[in-house]
């Protein structure tokens, strides 16, 4: 069972192929999350599609989907960075919406701001055209496997 995880992590770390990592989270695959690498930090992208609209009149992203994308950005960053053999368990999540999400792709990255032996604290940013103009910021705590 755990070989899925180590293979997915190896593909991500060595070949910058993140698809296997995303496949470990069926909901991330359902949303259509894509990943690009960097120096150990993932940059996630959620391509726009009509069925992710929350408000058709304004063609704005569904606020819940933006939150879901950011939560999964944090999970994927933790899976890449740590040697967990399961998806970390969510403890809590808080998001602040700064700008409306236009009908264009979303981007997100995640910083693991504190890594304890059992709990990780993460900060997630989400933007559209300009990386320095986030449309939402969020933070989340996750419970890690007992090591």
């Amino acid at each position: 069972m755990s070989s899925h995880w180590s293979e997915a992590r190896r593909a991500a770390r060595e070949r910058h192929d993140y698809q296997a990592l995303i496949e470990l989270i069926p909901y991330a695959r359902f949303l259509g999350i894509r990943a690009e690498g960097g120096n150990g930090r993932l940059c996630l992208r959620l391509p726009f599609r009509d069925s992710l609209i929350g408000n058709p009149r304004r063609r704005a992203w569904h606020g819940g989907v933006t939150a879901a994308f950011m939560e999964n950005a944090a999970l994927l960053q933790l899976l890449l960075q740590l040697d967990e053999d399961r998806v970390p368990k969510s403890i809590d999540f808080a998001i602040d919406y700064l700008l409306p999400g236009r009908a264009e792709d979303l981007h997100a990255d995640c910083t693991v701001s504190r890594l304890g032996s059992r709990v990780a604290h993460t900060v997630i940013r989400c933007w559209q055209r300009e990386a320095d103009q986030p449309i939402a910021v969020a933070r989340a705590h996750f419970l890690l496997s007992a090591s």
Partner: peptide
């Protein structure tokens, strides 16, 4: 589609936010 993990059978937290 809402699975958070291929092995545990848990819901992903994101769909709960939705």
């Amino acid at each position: 589609d809402w699975l958070g993990d291929v092995e545990s059978g848990r819901f992903n937290p994101g769909i709960v936010s939705v």
